[in-house]
Design a protein around this nucleic acid. Structure first.
Lengths: 253, 253
DNA sequence: TAGTGGTCTAGACCACTGA
DNA sequence: CAGTGGTCTAGACCACTAG
């Protein structure tokens, strides 16, 4: 007695710190509240700033905190559920599906995308940029790759680039008969351009949702959407009613 | 000329390092190959070890590298696609769905889970542990929460705990009429027990898939599955045929 | 036991925000 | 401008793995 339990396998300081901070967030802070700065916090816990930061990083990764350079660290609201449309197979751009077109250019896609589209690696495709906003915050940035062969009737009359062009490509896509779609989700880190769009630093963790649209037996379009991993919970199926949040734990049984 | 382009907004060293390493991985290394140790690499690039590690961490997050304490850093194989069953609404445990039961205990679930189940916060529920293996590697660990009311005919004859009990609970679940299911995916960090099961360190990034099974107008069961984010690509829908991998880029157009 | 990645320290300077 | 988080350094020790 007298000594705190001597752990034969002591957990790392930053791990313990994370636990302590997490409990403090539940009991002593409310959403949006600003935390003491990192130097003060580190001193208060008697650790180096780097160690404290390791704990803060994990909490930010879990969506509990939000840190902004020049501003400070705040308590994050619960993650917002964003529907990624599970069942119904629909083309992007129908009935304005929470996305809004930003731009469209004709460009040679990355090799991996070209391969998935099944076309020539050096063949330019329509590249539509769209962004998605939820609760006033940007949550996702998308690049939609559409081979020219998928939208044969696209007229040169439409603007050669820009939002108008993007809408034209989406409009032409609807004319195809959608046979199916395949979707995959994986972890990634934001490229510089996506990071800017998502109001994050480059390298920020994102959930990458890749969707392959199948029509006429081939890949008619490919969407690569990057969602902010810190603020988003992707929902599939009936609706976004699954609610498992981090919250104050109850006393053990 | 002569000077490399002076960047008005210089990118961080670790970011540039990551790019260089990434290209080296594409061109000079093959899957499974072991990299020089961190101290050597840092010296070779003329940076501190911490800076090099920042780059390695991101590459590991993106599934390009695999690091193991006491062993070294190796080039990771492409992420494996794991089907998370998109369309068909089925109970867990049917026709052995890639999962195998590990254990089952009766315990009071975390508050958030209890709330989702709609029951009393102090009411114990059947807690089934399952694990999922793909290509010989553990890829996911699951906790399936089943309220006693969902499996009323579970007899006391069955083992009170252990794999046999788990199978019994799953068997009883099948008798219910499944009305629908809701699924959500978000980023998390592995708890100590999950980390052990996944052969990772605690805090490792994981994709948390939460599934709510609806029957008789209520939540009949709740599954919380954590997938290794570094090695897994979750696929939904028809099959796992969407293949967008990091690969050697081609020369720009 | 030697070598690896994981943790930790105590500093320093930089980039950004907002008053 | 002062204050914040972001980057970086040059060390140290620890936990783990494998020969």
């Amino acid at each position: 007695m007298g000594t705190t339990q001597l752990e034969s396998v002591p957990e790392p300081k930053y791990w313990h710190l994370k636990t302590v901070l997490s409990e403090a967030l539940d009991s002593e802070f409310s959403v949006g509240e600003i935390l003491p700065n990192e130097r003060d916090l580190a001193a208060r816990f008697g650790v180096a700033r780097a160690t404290l930061r390791q704990a803060l990083e994990q909490l930010e990764l879990e969506g509990r905190l939000q840190r902004r350079r020049g501003v400070g660290t705040t308590v994050a609201p619960p993650r917002v559920g964003v529907a990624v449309g599970g069942e119904q197979h629909t083309w992007p751009g129908t009935a304005d599906d929470a996305w809004h077109p930003v731009d469209c250019v004709q460009a040679v896609p990355p090799a991996a995308v070209a391969d998935a589209l099944g076309g020539d690696r050096d063949e330019p495709v329509h590249t539509v940029r769209r962004s998605r906003v939820s609760h006033g915050q940007p949550v996702a940035a998308e690049l939609l790759y559409v081979p020219a062969s998928s939208v044969p009737d696209l007229t040169a009359i439409d603007a050669p680039s820009g939002p108008a062009r993007a809408r034209a490509v989406l409009r032409e896509l609807q004319r195809l008969d959608l046979e199916g779609q395949e979707r995959a989700v994986e972890l990634g880190s934001a490229r510089a351009d996506d990071a800017k769009e998502l109001d994050r630093l480059p390298g920020a963790p994102v959930l990458v949702v890749t969707t392959r649209f199948v029509a006429a037996g081939g890949t008619a379009a490919l969407s690569v959407a990057t969602y902010r991993a810190d603020t988003c919970r992707l929902t599939f199926g009936d609706s976004g009613r699954v609610e498992i949040h981090h919250g104050p734990e109850r006393k053990a049984s």
